[in-house]
Computed example of a mutant assay.
Amino acid sequence: MVTASALAIIALAATAGCSSSGEKRDYTVPSSLCGMAVPSGELRTFLPAGSKISVQDTTPVDRTKRCIVTVDGDRALVASREWWEKKDDIATVAFAHSQVKTGELGDRGRILYSELGAVGKTRCVDAAHPEDVLYVAVEAYNEGSKNAPGMKKLIASYTNAVESSSDCR
């Protein structure tokens, strides 16, 4: 007869070999996202195993700053800062980001997050955009990293970092 202890040891042995293979990061997880300080542990949650990480900053349109994080050449995460009209609510902004899909509201309606994406509404004011609101977004593309509580933490950290930056006057 197999005891509970024996089953636990068998389960541990079976998973011990799997956890290290295919999950190794040979790169250093950054401590910032698009120039904004965020805890690397929060970012690590959404980055896949691999050997090389790179970040490309882009400005696809005048009202948007975006950075694309790739691991081994594959898109892993995209973060952005986007000016939207005041009439646009957080659900409208979230709808524009495919990885957010449906989500939960948090921080008194200032963030909307799901397992792989989130948006945050900042309290930023900018003379160049007096009729607009600055939103931030994070989208993860590693299907194995689905983690709504982790995404909530990451978008909160990213939103706070943007609010503390020179982008938020």
Rank of each mutant, 00 (worst) to 15 (best):
L105R: 03
C67V: 08
E139F: 04
V138N: 04
V78H: 12
I111W: 11
I111V: 10
A94R: 00
A37N: 01
A128T: 12
C124F: 11
Y141N: 08
K87H: 09
T15D: 06
R110S: 15
L12Q: 07
L116K: 04
A6C: 08
E131T: 10
L116T: 01
D72P: 01
A37Q: 03
S114V: 00
D26Q: 05
G117N: 06
D167I: 11
L43C: 03
L77N: 14
S164R: 09
V29H: 07
G103M: 08
K146E: 07
T159C: 02
S20N: 07
V119M: 06
T45W: 04
A37C: 00
T102H: 10
R75I: 12
E143C: 04
I155G: 12
M36L: 10
Y27F: 04
T70Y: 02
N147P: 12
A127I: 13
S20C: 03
T122G: 04
I53T: 03
W83K: 06
S51I: 02
G144W: 01
Y113A: 14
I111K: 11
Y141P: 10
S19R: 11
G109K: 09
L154F: 11
V100P: 08
G103K: 06
R66A: 11
A118W: 00
L116D: 06
G120K: 08
F46I: 02
R81A: 08
A137C: 03
Y158Q: 09
T45S: 12
T58V: 05
Y113W: 08
S32I: 04
K101R: 10
V55L: 07
D132W: 05
D62M: 13
E115D: 15
D74R: 11
V2W: 04
S145C: 10
S5A: 09
Y141L: 06
D89L: 02
S54C: 12
T92N: 07
Q56V: 15
A128Y: 11
Y113G: 01
V125T: 15
A4F: 03
D126C: 08
T159H: 14
P48D: 14
L12E: 15
E23T: 04
A137H: 06
L77T: 09
I155T: 06
I53N: 00
K87Y: 10
A79Q: 14
T159Y: 14
T59I: 13
E42A: 14
G106Y: 15
E143I: 11
E42G: 10
I90G: 04
E82F: 12
C18F: 15
A156F: 07
K86V: 05
R75L: 12
Y158R: 08
R169E: 09
